[in-house]
Design a protein around this nucleic acid. Structure first.
Lengths: 232, 232
DNA sequence: GATATACTATGTCAATCGATAGATATTATC
DNA sequence: GATAATATCTATCGATTGACATAGTATATC
């Protein structure tokens, strides 16, 4: 009944206008889903905010869930792009049998710093941060995509590096917890910055620099302790 | 028009029954608000879950918002109780002018371990963890209460200790970020454990022990680095 | 037995929600 | 200029929501 997106044939002008409308809806939806959650944001609000009318959402995305999934997939694609250069290096270090432990630690630090940048820069950062935070608590159809993506792009690589550094297995529950704690240092910066703690401390270049510094120094300290504990 | 809760006069048996019903509503509401958010959970659902009928909510809590606030205040009171023994010791160490830095570090570790316990034990842990996580992103009338409480009971004490350890001011933005990173290690354990990472890893005694161990070791490592960096 | 408390049963209300039907406007191709 | 695909409009449907009003019942105190 609802033949959804017209992405096949290229008709220069009309197509361009359609694509523009699609993006406008997508961006408005991101902001509103972030601010009010999946249930909280109404399609009417989104349509109004995007300057289109209600059935436009059905036309472009089928229904509310389709729109939500599109928003999430957009963010996931963004994450992939952001991690594209680092991921293969980590992969390489993990398949190599004799990667020096100092290098593992350095890669782990770089990984977490890159994560900080992902979480604090780009377009619509505020909204993306909130969506990340929501991914950890909400139970909506699309969010597992984001969660899987985070596992694949962030958690698993960090776990791999950190476990090798400790000389332990990635299946060890202790390593899961240690990795979560590491990542938690960054994830907390995803929280609502309208709240007192992060208020004022926006996302200006200086704040981001500080966040990266803090995460790097903490992670280095933790890695140093790990090296000392499991020294050969 | 709506004279809300009958908490004044004591009529032994009837009163007890009323209190019981009140608690039953409160517990059901906690679970449902945690699982589905403020907007997501309907009063009808809550009433059904508690085995009362709809007007009972109005009778005891005035309206939906009143019920929500009651849930939040309940949790806040729980936090106060949990932190009651540690708070004055931290306060004491902070007002004393010459507290040894090792003691500051030890208190900080203890503080975070206590936080882990708060977040992983007691009745309805799962739901309370989710409410904590929601407090960081949702914008509902009652949640600032919880947030303020967290600032007063957790964040500010940690900030005070950690800043003293670094020999820096509590108003320094770097110290805010460092403290957030520390706390983030614990907060991440508040996330939905139905998700792959924490799945299986329930909240059995062994898991909690491991979480505490990890947080302690990481924090010790970070404190050691801080001591070395700002050594006298 | 009068009275207060602690509910329950039922129904209604306006508001808001997602979804859809169906008409219309715009544009590209032939 | 006819035709068809694309884009957007108005209008409305049915369901659910929080809230409230009214009436009734069971129990316990005085």
């Amino acid at each position: 009944m609802t033949d959804i997106p017209p992405t096949s044939r290229r008709r220069p002008t009309v197509q361009a206008r359609g694509e523009d409308t699609r993006r406008r809806i997508l961006e408005t939806a991101l902001d509103l889903f972030a601010a009010q959650g999946y249930e909280g944001a109404s399609t009417r609000q989104i349509a109004e905010g995007a300057g289109v009318n209600l059935p436009a959402i059905q036309y472009y995305f089928g229904n509310k869930e389709g729109l939500y999934r599109a928003v999430i997939e957009d963010i996931a694609a963004d994450t992939d792009r952001h991690m594209a250069s680092l991921a293969p290096r980590v992969q390489g270090a993990l398949v190599a049998p004799e990667t020096p432990r100092k290098e593992l630690a350095a890669l782990l630090c770089e990984m977490l710093e890159t994560f900080v940048v992902l979480v604090t820069s780009g377009t619509q950062v505020e909204s993306r941060r909130l969506i990340f935070a929501r991914a950890e608590i909400e139970e909506t159809p699309g969010l597992d995509i984001l969660h899987e993506n985070g596992m694949r792009q962030i958690f698993n690589p960090c776990l791999g590096l950190f476990a090798r550094l400790h000389g332990k297995s990635v299946t060890d529950q202790e390593m899961t917890f240690r990795t979560l704690a590491l990542i938690g240092q960054v994830v907390i910066f995803c929280n609502n910055n309208k709240r007192p703690v992060l208020a004022g401390a926006g996302l200006d270049a200086e704040s981001v620099r500080l966040m990266k510094l803090v995460v790097r120094e903490h992670t280095e300290a933790i890695c140093r302790a790990a090296l000392a504990a499991s020294a050969p």
